[in-house]
Each structure stands twice: as C-alpha cells, then as structure tokens.
Amino acid sequence: MTLSAVPASLRLPPWRALLLRPAGLTGTIIVAIVTVAALAAPLIATHDPIAVDLSRKLLPPGATHWLGTDQTGRDIFSRIVWGARPSLAVGLLAVLIGAAGGIMFGLTAAFARGWWEQVAMRIMDGLASIPLLIWAIAITGIVGIGPVRIGMWTFPNESKLILLIGLLYMPPLARVTYGSALLEVRADYVQARRLQGAGASAIMLGDVLPNCLSPVIVQATLLIAVGIVVEASLSFIGLGVEPPFPSWGGMLADARRYIFSGEWWTYIFPGLAISLTVIGFNLLGDGLRDILDPRKVSGSGRMVV
C-alpha cells in the first residue's frame, strides 16, 4: 500500500535484526556477560566469595581487589560474580515456571473454549489480583526464613520465591498466549490440519504453539528483569538469599552504613550490577518486541509490580 520501503532490518533473520539495533545489541551483550559470569563463577572470581579476612576489610579498589573489599574483608568483585547466580536463578526459573503454567492455561483455554476457557481465565484473573511483592514477603514470613528440606534434598531459601513468583507470572503469560492462540485457532491451516485428522494435542503443540511464541518470549524476557529486582529487594531486607552466600541485594544490605563513612565501592558496585543486569534484560525484551511485535510502543505493556 504505502511507498515506504521495508526497513532493511525487517528482512534479516530476527537475531541479526536484534543485533543491528543499539538497544537490542546492548541488551544482548549485557545478558551474555551476566550469564557467563553466573555459569563460570568459579573460574572468573579472583577470590573465595565468603572467605573472611578482617585484616583486609574495607580496602578500596586496587590491584588485588579490583572492586575493593567489604566490612569482613571479602572480595567484592568475586562476590558480585557469584551473586549473579541467585539473581539469574530466580529470574530464569520463575519465568520457566510461569511460562510452563501460563502457556498451558492460555493454550488449552483457547483450544477448549466453553467452560474450561472460563475457569482457566478466571483462575488467571484471581492470581493477577495478588500483589507480587507483598506476597513474596508474606510467604517467606509465614513459612519461615531458611532452607526447605524435602526428603533428602535441601533447597535454598529463595526457592520459595521462585515458586511464588513463577505462580504469579502465569497470568500475564497466559494472557498473551491465549490472545495469539485464539487468532491461530481460527486460522485456515488449523482447520485443514483438523480435517487431515491430526490430534488436538498435535495441533496445539506442533502447529499453534510455535506460531504464538513470539509475544510470550518478549514478555518472558521482561519478566526475568522483574524477578531479578524482586530477588535483590528481598535479599536486601533479609528475606531472600541467606548470608553469607553472596547476593547483590544482601551485599547492599551490608553496605548501607558505609554510605555515611564514605566507602563508596561497597554500595556502588553491587547496585550497578543489579541495575545493569536488569537494564540488559529490559533492553533485550524491548528489542525483541521491536522485531517480533513492532506495533507496540517499546516500554508499554509491561507487567506492573
């Protein structure tokens, strides 16, 4: 219809298009760095993140301690590198749970129609009316801070967070799945596959799901960012990762009092680590949306927490 030529970036494979935009590129680089840090923490960290050495406490950044040391002489750089683990674990695992549940509810609701559609979407509405942060605080409060033991396994304190956040992530992911699955279900090719005698689950998982994944991926990326912020905030007030294990929020809790005495490296670097990581996931999510779902204004349509 219009004369305007298709922007060059739209004709490229999606990952190329993503990397061609400054936001997408920055996001991808940050996320890659954080992921590598989390996976290869033992290799990257220069010191033992929990080794206390009071003779080396509160050293400013220097040659041996790149980002300085904290009040018990632990190496801040190493703690930040290790701290990427709980952050990403909470962010990713919660989104995985949320996506699994959300896709299941959204997809089956779009397919089944009728009563199940009503019930599934009502359940999602109910979950959506629960404020995430307060409940994360409440659940840890009621269940108690500390590791969870189930049989022979022990799960760290933050696994409660992962479960709860995952649960509360289901509604937004179910809604985007449901929305795009509804359009797909009405499409001709689904009717054709039905006539060919393909089973409902084969159509659902094999044909419909792949076609409505893009908005789910966009939303999920943005939700990882939310999870990381929630984990850090709860660790900051002492309800998340338990000391002495390193977490960015926990490091900031320790560093509070040094705001007044001037040891700036104790509270600047962990805060930068969180903020940059979260910016990375947000930029990646917005970049993905620009490519996969270009009608939306970037930054709108986020899940509010």
Partner: peptide
C-alpha cells in the same frame, strides 16, 4: 528504561 531497571532500594541508597 532506567526507571524500570534501577531497584527502588538502591535508588534510595
């Protein structure tokens, strides 16, 4: 982007 990324508590600090 900064607003949704910088955690409230660090901003406070």
């Amino acid at each position: 982007t900064l607003g949704v990324s910088i955690p409230t508590f660090w901003l406070g600090l």
